[in-house]
Structures are given as C-alpha cells and as structure tokens.
Design a binder for these strands. Structure first.
Lengths: 347, 347
DNA sequence: CTGTTAGCGCCTTCAT
DNA sequence: ATGAAGGCGCTAACAG
C-alpha cells in the first residue's frame, strides 16, 4: 500500500573509496575530463554504474560558483507572440536569479540569414547556452554548428533547423498543427460543401509551409465536399492580408471555411466582418493573443491552434539548464503540445 | 539590443554585515524562527528588503542534508487516469533522486471519507508535503487542516476541497471543462436538432457535478435545438454504463450527441457501437488513455477533454517543493489547462 | 597521471 | 537573544 520512488544517497567519496582512487579522479571521469589513464577510467565508471551513482545537483551548482549565461536570440519586430515569450521569461526572473542563471535577450533580424548568423557567431565563447528562433538557411545552420562545436548548448525555438546539430527543438509539430486546423475547419463547417480559403504569411517560411501541407492533407482525404482555394500570402501584415482576402471573398460567394496560417489576424478578421460573413464562415487561426482572444469571445474566430508561449519559454530555459548540467531531459515535460483553444477553454 | 534579466548575487554574509548581526541571526529571521528580538528582526528584514536578497537554493538544499519526503495519496482502484499520474511520477525518479526528494505512494479508498481521513492523519509528522486526490467531505477537510497545522504542505490533486486550508489545488476548472464539452458537442453536431445524452459516474462527485453544470449551461444558452436528456449514472464502471446507455439509445432514435463525464468509456463506446450509431452520434468524453486514443483514431469518439496527467504529476511535485522551500510558485506554469484533444493533435 | 585542499552559501548544533 | 564553527557534496586550483 505504500511504495517509495527514490533511491538513497551515495556521494562522490563513496565511489572514490570503492574504486580506490581520489575524489578528484572520480570528478574527472564524471565529466569526461582528460588526464586519467583509460584503465582507471574503466574502474571508476564501473563503480559509478554499479551503484547507479548520481551527483547531487545542488552541491555541484554551489561548487562551481560561476553563474551560467544563456542568450535568447529573437526577432526584433513587434511580433505579439514573440513578445509573449519575452514576457514569460521576464516573469521567471526570480526563479532564474535564485539559481544564479543569467539570461540575455538578443534582438535581431531573424529573417536575414547573414544578420542572424552574425548575431549567433557573436555569442560564441561567453555563453553556456543559446535559444534561437531560427531561419532554416545554410549560413544559420553553420553558425549553429559552430556554437555547438565551441561547447555551447543550442536549442531552436518555435522554428527548427533540423539540418543543424542543435541539441533540442522546443516547439510544435507544424504539420500536425495544420492537420488539426483542417479537421476543425472541416468538422465545424458541418455538412456544408463549399470552398475553403487559406491566408499565410509566406509559403517560404518553413512553419507556414508545413502547416499548409498538413491542412491540405486532411482536406483532401477527409472532406471531399470542401475545395481548397489557392493560398493567399499576406506577409503576416494586417493591411495586406485584409486586401487579398477581401478580394477573394468578393469573388467567391460560397466560402464556408478560412484558415489563417500566421499573423495578420486583425486584417483577416476585418475583411470577414466587412463582408458581413464573419458568422457564416468557419474561421480557424493560430495563437492566443489579446486579439484572437477577443475574436474567439465574439464568435468571429471559431478556434485557435496554440502553442503555449509560457511553456515554450520555460521549456527552453529548463532544457538549456539540463543540457548544461548534463542532466537528462524530461522529454515528455518539454514537449510542446498543439492546443486547441475555443471560447470555453480560453486559458 | 541586449538586455539582461537577472540580478547579482548577494549572500547571507553581506546581509549580516549590513545589519550588524551574525549569519545565524539572519538565518533565523529568514525562516521566521523564534528567538530574535523584534527590533533586530526589523533591522534584518530591512536589510533583506533593501537588497532584495534571495538565498541561493542550491546552497540551502545542500546544507539541510535531510531529504524531503512527499506523499501522494491516490485511489486504490484500477483507474487508468490515476495510473497514468503514478506512471509519470515514476518517470521522474531520476529527477527526484538528484534533488534528494522522496515520494511515497499511498493507495487508499478515496471514496470513503473516514478511510481517506485516516490515511491522511497517518502521514502527520513524517512528511514535508502531501498531494491528495480528495473527496470533498467534512472529515477529509478536517484531516487536511490538521496536516496544514502540523506544518505539512498540502496540495489537492484533480479534485479539490476548496473549504479546506490546503495550500494549492492542482487540477482543472471542471465547470469550464463541462462548458467546453458542451460547445464541442453542439458545434460538431452541426445544424442538426435532436437529443443529447449524458453519462456520468455519479452526480455526487464534485468534479462530475461541476462538469454537468457547465455542460448544461452551454446547451441551454447556445444550442436551443438540442435537448438534454436526464443524466445517466454508470458509477464509472463499464458494464453499468453500457447497460444504462443501451437502454436509452433504444428508447430515443434521435440522439445526436453524447457526453461521457467520467470513466466507464469502454462500456459507453460498446453501447454506441452495438446500436450501430457510433458514426452518427457526436461523442465527447474525458482524458486521453490507451482506450480513448483508440476510439479517437477510429472516429468513434470525436473529442476528449483532457487534463495532462504528466503535467499534473510534475506540477504537484514542483508546487510541494516550492512550498517546502518557501519559494514563490509560478502560478502560470502550474496552472492545469483544459486540453481539447482530437484525432490530429493526439499527444 | 593522480591526490590534497580550500572553499561555494547556507543550516545547525553548541556556546555564550 | 545572539554568535561561532563545522559541515553538506562537489569543483578547481595546485601539488606531487
């Protein structure tokens, strides 16, 4: 009826005694530091394994003295989603400070590969870890790999660079997100048949392209009654998104669904309202912001696919910390889920 | 372009010097321990405030030596959801162990107030914190309050006892969960009008009652075309749930929606399939388990309202730890969201 | 290559 | 009511 989940506490000293060496040697082996005879290494490793010894994090933290430095490299523009992430990092300051963790924000033009790459290079050396909202481009990949080679821990945030050797990606599976959007548009549109519009920032952005891909997958296979119109590009800007959508709405009277892949939500909503069709068209978009929250409550938007920015901020920090300490990562905990947010489960 | 988020590191010694007292005295004040003249307390507190001093957690952890003991008091039956929580606690064992944390599982009959209360009383003294899946009953409330008075940190898990003085509740807002379920059933049923069935474990359970309340709210206000049938009670058992539902389905040919409030999902699904109506009826239930996952993939279930059991397990541990250390709680992080899970965003 | 040693910042007796 | 001093388990600098 009662069962205990944790083991007891051995220390470095115990291992040292058991392996017949000194503290320092065990420490060297533990951290793969050079200067130990291969044979000794083996003996020590054996002792560590045998007792499944785990060093006490608090003691290690205390002893190293030096605070750790992490950098967050983020887009410089006024992107509300990114601002939310920064906001949540700010809320963690007390948490960070009692752990002697320093995080520095670096704003940069993430859409210009060379600028981004330069910002990353500049960090080399004085950082233990960096989280970056990255563009998937060869020079960015190279910059990331250089950091990794220099011993810096790197996680990509929100947008991945799978071809690089980054240690971890903190963000959602965008293809699945697109599929989810598709299923929602299809199911909420009910029995109706008709046309479905897609507004994206740019199909050149990896995450947008992946979402559209997933969306189309579901549409084609599960909702044959709905036909998807060619993708509109609004560059994540309100004005432009509004214009292109307004034109499309004027042309097609039988649009029953709308998927807004990126930002520019304000403009999309305006086009819909101005056409007087905000109640008939099923409107699904991304992310919960002050704006989308309002649109959901008003019934203009029907659902938002969301990646919890607070979770992403905290996961990035925790993962960097775990990597720096050499601790295992709780993958399940750090995985970012695709949230479906409707009016009644607004966070 | 670069901004730093954390402060620099003062130590106890600095504060001691500044307040003109010794280390020990500052420590006493910091932990509200007795034996310090009120006047001295004030001086020390002032110095702490003035520098917004925060003790280094790692050092504190190291110095106290003694491991902390937490207990999880959970239902003894084979409830899959609870088993998931236990599973995730198990996955944390490495995390727990490097922090010298001990967690003990206590299985008990949470449906019998006196048994539950006794289990709680038994913990008094040898535990730093307890997480309990509680029944909202006077004797349970008393047991919780006793623990709190004895200095044990208490969090309620999944099911709250708001009238007690527990330090924290880790779980979802069940009324909002019910509303979400209602919105989903209503919207996914499309334009159709017809009847909606509800199967619950028991209306005596606080969480079930709250969910039903929220569900009815939404149905009444937003889906006048749908009429809700009287609640069926299946005691969270498969057989019983199947029987009562089968009978209801036979009686009403125009059921278009079904809300399964608690467990017994297997039985509910069977009744639906046996009646050959699993494709026409919109079926919404709770929690993602092996079973509901399968039903979602098969298209028998349309959506599951879920409270991430992994998140709940970890949040409970983190909150207990923060409470024990006197650290602030990251409320946003520990809040449990209401997840809508459909086929394409299955975690 | 390996061992010794002096802390890291705080908590906890034990004296005063 | 207050202070002094010895660790907690690990790291890192310095000897050997």
């Amino acid at each position: 009826m009662a069962e205990t989940l944790t083991a007891t506490a051995l220390t470095l000293k115990d291992i040292a005694r058991e392996a017949g060496v000194s503290l320092a040697t065990v420490d060297r082996v533990l951290h793969n530091r050079p200067g130990v005879r291969p044979d000794t290494v083996r003996r020590v490793k054996a002792a560590i394994e045998r007792n499944s010894f785990q060093p006490h994090v608090a003691a290690a933290e205390l002893a190293r003295g030096r605070a750790r430095r992490f950098a967050f490299v983020m887009p410089s523009g006024p992107n509300p989603f990114m601002q939310q992430i920064e906001g949540y990092l700010g809320e963690m300051s007390a948490w960070l400070s009692v752990r002697r963790l320093n995080v520095e924000m670096v704003a940069t033009d993430v859409f210009d590969p060379s600028v981004l790459a330069a910002s990353l290079e500049a960090l080399s050396g004085d950082c233990d870890g960096v989280a970056v909202v990255a563009l998937d481009h060869p020079s960015v990949r190279a910059a990331i790999n250089d950091l990794v080679d220099a011993g810096t821990k790197v996680v990509t945030l929100v947008s991945d660079v799978p071809s690089s050797r980054r240690h971890h990606y903190v963000g959602i599976d965008n293809i699945a997100a697109g599929r989810t959007a598709g299923a929602l548009v299809g199911r909420l549109a009910g029995q109706k048949s008709g046309k479905v519009a897609i507004v994206a920032g740019s199909q050149g952005l990896r995450d947008h392209a992946e979402r559209i891909f997933g969306f189309n997958q579901v549409m084609a296979s599960e909702f044959p009654g709905l036909s998807v119109l060619p993708v509109l590009e609004g560059r994540d800007e309100d004005d432009r998104s509004e214009q292109v959508l307004a034109r499309l709405l004027a042309k097609h009277a039988d649009i029953v669904g709308l998927y807004n892949v990126g930002a520019g939500t304000q403009g999309v909503a305006k086009a819909l309202s101005d056409a007087g069709r905000d109640k008939q068209v099923v409107f699904v978009g991304h992310d919960v912001t002050v704006l989308t929250r309002r649109l959901l409550l008003q019934g203009v938007m029907d659902a938002a696919i969301s990646q919890n920015p607070g979770h992403e901020a905290r996961a990035a920090v925790r993962v960097l910390l775990a990597l720096a300490r050499g601790e295992p990562i709780l993958r399940e905990q750090e995985k970012i889920r695709i949230d479906i947010v409707m009016r009644d489960n607004l966070p």
